[in-house]
Write a protein that binds this DNA or RNA. Structure first.
Lengths: 124, 124
DNA sequence: CCTTATAACTTGCAAAATGCAAGTCACACG
DNA sequence: CGTGTGACTTGCATTTTGCAAGTTATAAGG
């Protein structure tokens, strides 16, 4: 039969986005990437203090979902960095809408500054 | 001295939004409310099949967060409905941005139809 | 050399959240 | 009286999360 389960929970776009991004950490990693962070230690040093096993898990899942690419930026010793794909960058309007609503309803919150300007190498 | 911990994880607006909405179910309840659903059984009947204990938990948290109001629409027996507050309705642009990105990257997903047009009249 | 440091993870385990089934309670209807 | 409905609650197993510590490779300093 051709009743292939195309979607995990339903064919609602919101549901499918939540199946990828619906937790307390994934979108914060995306936020850091949008702000220009690229390296493991940079993500770890964000004020929310993500645990290293959660970070590793989220980076792997984001890579599997095609939102992030991992690449070595040097050998000996091998060091890696993470960059948003075009698909990942497409989430910026979502983050923007969240920031607008968040700033309005959580007084005192502040948009974080970018950590690296210019030089926006985006890998397809 | 203002050493009061104003924020749970950080003063990032995104982080604070995620502390309220960052899981796989809360935004789906909001979606249902935006679509016009109001009653417990209506939320339960959505295709994602939320468990009743999770639904009760999320409705209580949404009410505590000021996104939803609960009110009796009849007595004997008491029956309640849930409505978005103005603050809750303010999330529509966030949902909209998620739908736009979701429809683009999850081919075959479809925006769900509203279930109730117009205002207060609730038909049985 | 030998100690210390750094990047990028991995492992172990306790705690919390989620999922599923079933139960509860107050009524209304026939 | 028996059945049905709405709105939850409860119990318990599974899954996910959080925290601390360990690992591997290499480099830099004394």
């Amino acid at each position: 039969m051709s009743t292939t389960m195309r979607f995990k929970r339903s064919d609602c776009p919101i549901t499918n986005v939540l199946d990828t991004l619906g937790d307390k950490w994934t979108l914060l990693v995306i936020r850091d990437l949008v702000l220009g962070k690229r390296r493991y230690q940079e993500f770890l040093s964000s004020p929310e203090r993500i645990a290293s096993n959660i970070l590793a898990d989220r980076l792997a899942k984001l890579e599997a979902a095609g939102l992030v690419t991992r690449r070595a930026y040097q050998q000996n010793p091998a060091r890696h960095e993470y960059l948003l794909t075009k698909k990942g960058k497409g989430l910026e309007p979502v983050l923007e809408a969240i920031i607008v609503w968040g700033q309005k309803h959580y007084p005192g919150t502040k948009r974080f500054p970018t950590v690296r300007q210019g030089d926006g190498a985006v890998k397809q």
